[in-house]
């Protein structure tokens, strides 16, 4: 049996072992130009979890999620979503990239961007109709941006742009939300608004994965945590995994021991 067949076989086993997990990752390794940035990471996301991926800068958090969703190529590893291969589960996953990753001068209105979330629903070789515009407008209302539908996206504040991205994800009607630093560079009001929307989604049974930077809010916002630094350090419920020892192992000398102890003990 050749290697691809073996890999497909391993993928089926992973899916069979975790049919309920919205995102199960086994032995995921990613390298940029020969340099490993994510090494053999395992993660089984429990259904209904609100999971923070934390770790120092350059720990490979964003890369892990991008590779898991097939956005960047992986060297090895298996990924299943809802017990299925990624290809078959794509429509059940909403991905929100980092806000800074796009050019906000692009000639599009707020509504245009939210409509992109309906891409799969509109379908190949078809144009959006009135029904789709109404759906997009409804998603804008849910993030409090209904008054900005016709605004060019470059005229928004950072927080407003992040809400537009969240509205686009809502339009996808997914079961799993994968977000890359949704709170980076947003104002406090937006952060509260986004957390409220995410908690609503979570109460409705949706699973949420966020790359997260602010260690002081992990306990308030999330139920689960993955602590990593190129390799997995720990994962599990916040109470069990978010410990000073694990943070120390991930951040090393980059945070003062007292700081780590304070955050985890709060």
């Amino acid at each position: 049996m050749n290697a691809p067949v073996l890999m497909a076989e391993a993928g089926r086993r992973l899916g069979a072992d975790h049919p309920e997990s919205p995102l199960a990752i086994a032995g995921l390794t990613v390298a940029y130009g020969g340099k490993p940035v994510v090494v053999s990471v395992d993660l089984v996301t429990p259904p209904g979890a609100m999971l923070a991926v934390i770790g120092p800068n350059g720990a490979g958090k964003s890369t892990l999620l991008k590779a898991a969703l097939g956005i960047v190529p992986r060297v090895s590893g298996e990924v299943t979503a809802f017990g299925q291969p990624l290809r078959e589960a794509r429509r059940r996953i909403a991905y929100v990239p980092q806000r800074a990753s796009v050019d906000w001068e692009f000639p599009a209105t707020v509504l245009d961007v939210v409509m992109m979330g309906l891409y799969r629903e509109i379908g190949l070789l078809r144009f959006a109709g009135k029904r789709h515009r109404e759906r997009a407008a409804e998603c804008l209302r849910r993030v409090g941006m209904q008054d900005f539908a016709d605004r060019q996206i470059g005229q928004l504040s950072g927080g407003q742009q992040q809400r537009v991205f969240l509205a686009r994800a809502l339009a996808q009607g997914a079961g799993l939300y994968v977000m890359d630093e949704p709170f980076a560079g947003v104002d406090a009001a937006t952060e509260r608004a986004i957390v409220e929307v995410l908690k609503d989604l979570n109460r409705a049974g949706r699973t949420i994965l966020c790359v997260h930077h602010d260690l002081s809010t992990v306990k308030d916002y999330f139920t689960h945590v993955l602590i990593m630094n190129v390799r997995r350090i720990a994962d599990g419920p916040v109470a069990a995994a978010f410990t000073p020892e694990n943070l120390q192992a991930a951040y090393g000398g980059r945070l003062a021991p007292a700081q780590i102890g304070g955050i985890a003990a709060e």
Binding site: I71, P97, D103, Y119
Partner: peptide
């Protein structure tokens, strides 16, 4: 506009 998002929705 957003190639990473484009890849994520196939």
């Amino acid at each position: 506009f957003d190639p990473t998002f484009a890849a994520s929705v196939g």
